[in-house]
Nucleic acid binder design. Structure first.
Length: 868
RNA sequence: GCGCCCGUGGUGAAAUGGCAGACACGCUGGAUUUAGGUUCCAGUGCCGCGAGGUGUGAGGGUUCGAGUCCCUCCGGGCGCACCA
């Protein structure tokens, strides 16, 4: 190691940061230690997709937060696991390959190298020996292995399902790559088309994925989104026998409102319902042409069109088809309409227009009868419960289930909605025409992509129609080289072009073809946190003893955009591995925090026309700009997502060059609470940069003395240690930094008076600050005469006795208004406080001539006089 | 429409039911330097010369006391969106 760079007070951040980054790397300072008896802290960042654009200022936000925490925990004596890796499969590298012919692996490696370099330039304390890369065959070997376990457990299957087919790109897109019915890349139309796909039975875990959310220390919003996504509802399946031409068939419906069965006036089936196809085939539908036309129209609608058209209900009556209401034997007309989804429940509903808004809207369009069976508790209908159906005249459906009372509903009349549901289910079960049923919105996970740059499925389809897994000992099944990466145009994945790879023959001469789909990007990220625990193991994805030691992840920090998909998929895989006895916990991530997005500043004219940063003219520090062909005028500043078009993207490299990594880290933490959205302001970086300069000056320019701390110094120091430590425990980085700024303000004032500062005073402060600004921390520690890194130096303990003061100033209120301040002894009794307060002239003025009704004196807090 | 979150100075923000605006940016004035994104001092919610008044989106409530707790409304963000 070279000596301290400080010979003068200049804050040479570039040299300091380079020096310590090299030191940490060469000495493997942050190699995970597994000290016996020490508590573990597994702190995980969501690993990035290494895009060609490099790091943006959003990445370092969460990474800095976890880094500070990890450095703090190491100093507190914890065994810390803090790894980083790359989620490197994905579409952009493949698109680039299509355009240029460059192998995605080449692009990926280049991007990873750049990301690694940028991340290292921020001084994060990752254990680089544990770096993982989802595209590394040594890694995806185990992704494939886990898939095989899912397959063997019966959780993976092939099905013909509708997918997002983009004719222009000649490929299938994932849902997340389709925005409002068009491709995210290129903005081409996307249509639904059935194709053979791999599915994972996540639905089998729906209940556990839902109920275990209660055990997690996660943001309430994320848990709520997962609950909505899983979408549990409790209701009933009810059988409607068919009458007329289709007699003998049964239409099964799912309903959460079986209490309203007496109010059903028609039925609706989805256009794709198998019974409709059957009836068309057998010719029992009189208006078959009309029905077919509607089916065709519904099928050709894109998702966008479906949502746009959902205001006006459409549908077609199935002429000749009747369903019999099991509770009253009434024959109901049956419609098809695309407002009933084929994929939810049974794909058919009973319609109760009086008590369901969608049914109400449909009934209005088709002039169908509307019968009231639930009435407000205090209404006339509820009081004079008529046994006969009551036509419903209100302008909207009545859907209040909390207070509604059943009317005109036979044996349910007079009951609450809740009681009526229970009674109806009992009745349905007794008669054998229905039963209670819990339903989930969650669908099975569409797990295949028609892509090159993903994990190949280790599956072979044999000519005899059977299918088998690639034996475990033959994993990984690596990707073949391709001459070009263009889509085939038919929907057939690019891997189909690798003929030699695709065609296989077994020992007995049986021929087969490999699966040519690849896994989605989520696969690799479903379990990477497990691999970090034992990243070089070639016998297992990780050693069970180590898994037991490190799981669960204690803190997981990442963007809110992964609230549902990644986090739900990873929980699902984890639970499967748990059931197989391969991981020791039922949940992977104990505590989750979403960092808030960092926005850029954007500018618009008074009429709202956006003006890019490079078109702005600054006059006296005020922004001016012009609309197309317009006059220059003052602009309005507002925070907006950083974007290329606004030219307001902040590049971390620039910030590091101008102010240093420590300043960037400190600023990102000082902007505000980690979890909230914050606009980037470069002036703020200057603020914290100046703070670091002052710290540097304080330590290197003040005369350092061996004398004991004064009482004031001890109080200042210990208050800072306490506040910083307390704030770190609750991730309040911004207030911890402000506490350190207060320290420096006070220390500078102190130094000015005394001419020197005790060594201990400065040393302990440097230790406090080091997790936030680690490069300067190390440098100043060395300056203070220490030979080694401070990374494992014990976190300073604060001395509570140093915080004790003899006298405090408390506010005095009269009728709740502040009227004065008095100094009292810290242990003053309420009576003493009252006396002191009354003696204060500012207060006495407001008590004069008044009667004191009550005195509230809270020790160490305040005094309040209630007067008349 | 439904669910979740959030409204505090010119700006980013602090504040276990107890002195609103800590800390920082910006700004104003001054000092030292003036190559300066330097450093230092003072001031800075609003109204008022002042005593004082007033102030946390609006209105109501609980309380000796409310930014904080409860109710209604308004505004913003995010998510889901025909899920029967």
């Amino acid at each position: 190691m070279t000596g301290a760079i400080h010979t003068m007070s200049d804050y040479n951040f570039s040299a300091i940061e380079k020096k310590w980054q090299t030191f940490w790397l060469e000495n493997k300072t942050f190699k995970t230690v597994e000290k016996e008896g020490a508590e573990k802290f597994y702190c995980l960042d969501m690993f990035p997709y290494p895009s060609g654009a490099g790091l943006h200022v959003g990445h370092p936000e969460g990474y800095t937060a976890t880094d500070i925490l990890c450095r703090y925990k190491r100093m507190k004596g914890f065994n810390v696991l803090h790894p980083m890796g790359w989620d490197a499969f994905g579409l952009p590298a493949e698109q680039y390959a299509v355009e240029t012919g460059t192998h995605p692996a080449v692009t990926t490696e280049k991007n990873v190298n750049r990301f690694r370099e940028q991340i290292r330039a921020l001084g994060f304390s990752y254990d680089w020996d544990r770096e993982v890369n989802t595209t590394d065959p040594k890694y995806y070997k185990w992704t494939q292995w886990i898939f095989e376990q899912l397959y063997k457990k019966g959780l993976a299957y092939v099905a013909e399902v509708p997918v997002n087919w983009c004719p222009a790109l000649g490929t299938v897109l994932a849902n997340e790559e389709v925005i409002d019915g068009r491709s995210e890349r290129g903005n081409h139309p996307v249509i639904r088309r059935p194709m053979r796909q791999w599915m994972l039975k996540i639905t089998e875990y729906a209940e556990r994925l839902l109920s275990d959310l209660d055990t997690l220390d996660w943001p309430e919003g994320v848990k709520e989104m997962q609950r909505n996504w899983i979408g549990k509802s409790t209701g009933a399946l009810v059988d409607f026998q068919c009458a007329g031409a289709c007699a003998g068939d049964t239409i099964k419906v799912y309903t959460t409102r079986c209490d309203t069965l007496f109010g059903a006036t028609y039925m609706v089936m989805s256009p794709e319902h198998p019974l409709v196809a059957k009836w068309l085939e057998s010719g029992v539908i009189a208006n078959a042409d009309e029905v077919k036309a509607y089916q065709k129209k519904a099928a050709s609608k894109s998702d966008l069109e479906r949502t746009e058209l959902n205001k006006e209900k459409t549908g077609v009556l199935l002429d000749g088809i009747k369903g019999v209401n099991p509770v009253n034997g009434e024959e109901l007309p049956v419609f098809i309409s695309d407002y009933v989804l084929a994929t939810y429940g049974t794909g058919a509903i009973m319609a109760v227009p009086a008590h369901d808004e969608r049914d109400f809207d449909f009934a209005k369009v088709f002039a169908l009868p509307i019968v009231q069976v639930v009435a407000p508790a205090d209404s006339d209908e509820a009081k004079n419960a008529s046994p006969d159906p009551v036509p419903y005249t209100a302008g909207a459906a009545f859907t209040d289930i909390a207070t509604g009372v059943m009317v005109s509903s036979g044996f349910l009349t007079g009951l609450s909605v809740d009681d009526a549901r229970k009674k109806m289910i009992a009745w349905l079960e007794e008669k054998g025409v229905g039963k209670a049923k819990t339903q989930y919105k969650l669908r099975d996970w569409l797990f295949s992509r028609q892509r090159y740059w993903g994990e190949p499925f280790p599956v072979i389809h044999w000519e005899d129609g059977t299918q088998s897994l690639v034996p475990e000992e033959d994993l990984p099944l690596t990707l073949p080289e391709l001459a070009d990466y263009k889509p085939t145009g038919t929907g057939e994945p690019p891997l189909a072009k690798a003929v030699d790879w695709v065609n296989v023959t077994d020992a007995n001469g049986r021929k087969g073809v490999r699966e040519t789909n690849t896994m989605p990007q989520w696969a690799g990220s479903c379990w990477y946190y497990l691999r970090y625990i034992d990243p070089h193991n070639d016998k297992a994805f990780a050693d069970p003893a180590l898994l037991k030691k490190w799981l669960p992840v204690d803190l997981y920090v990442g963007g809110a955009e992964h609230a549902v998909l990644h986090l739900l998929y990873a929980r699902f895989w984890h639970k499967v591995l748990f059931d197989l006895g391969l991981v020791p916990t039922s949940e992977p991530f104990q505590k989750l925090v979403n960092q808030g997005m960092i926005l850029g500043m954007a500018y618009k004219t008074p009429r709202g026309v956006l003006v890019p940063m490079d078109k702005i003219e600054w006059r006296d520090g005020k922004p001016f700009g012009a609309e197309e062909g317009g006059e220059m005028e003052p602009l309005v500043e507002f925070p907006a997502k950083m974007s290329k078009s606004l030219k307001n993207v902040v590049n971390p490299d620039d910030v590091i060059r101008d102010y240093g990594a420590d300043s960037l880290r400190l600023y990102e933490m000082f902007m505000g609470p980690l979890q909230v959205v914050k606009p980037w302001q470069t002036n703020g970086v200057r603020g914290v940069h100046n703070f670091l300069k002052r710290v540097n000056r304080l330590v290197t320019e003040t005369k350092i003395s061996e004398r004991a701390m004064t009482k004031d110094e001890a109080r200042t120091l210990n208050a800072t240690i306490k506040k910083v430590g307390d704030d770190l425990e609750v991730l309040a980085f911004n207030t911890a930094i402000s506490a350190m700024m207060v320290f420096v303000n006070e220390a500078e004032a102190e130094a000015k008076v005394s001419g020197d500062l005790p060594k201990e005073f400065l040393e302990k402060f440097v230790l406090c600050m080091a997790p936030f600004a680690p490069h300067l921390g190390e440098e100043l520690w060395q300056f203070l005469g220490h030979g080694d890194s401070l990374a494992y130096e014990p976190w300073p303990l604060y001395d509570p006795s140093a915080l004790v003061v003899d006298e405090i100033e408390i506010p005095v209120q009269v009728l709740g208004k502040l009227r004065g301040r008095v100094k009292v002894g810290v242990s003053a009794t309420p009576a003493e406080m009252e006396a002191a307060a009354k003696a204060n002239p500012d207060v006495a003025k407001f008590l004069e001539g008044k009667t004191i009704v009550k005195v509230i004196a809270v020790p160490k807090r305040m005094v309040n006089f209630v007067v008349k």
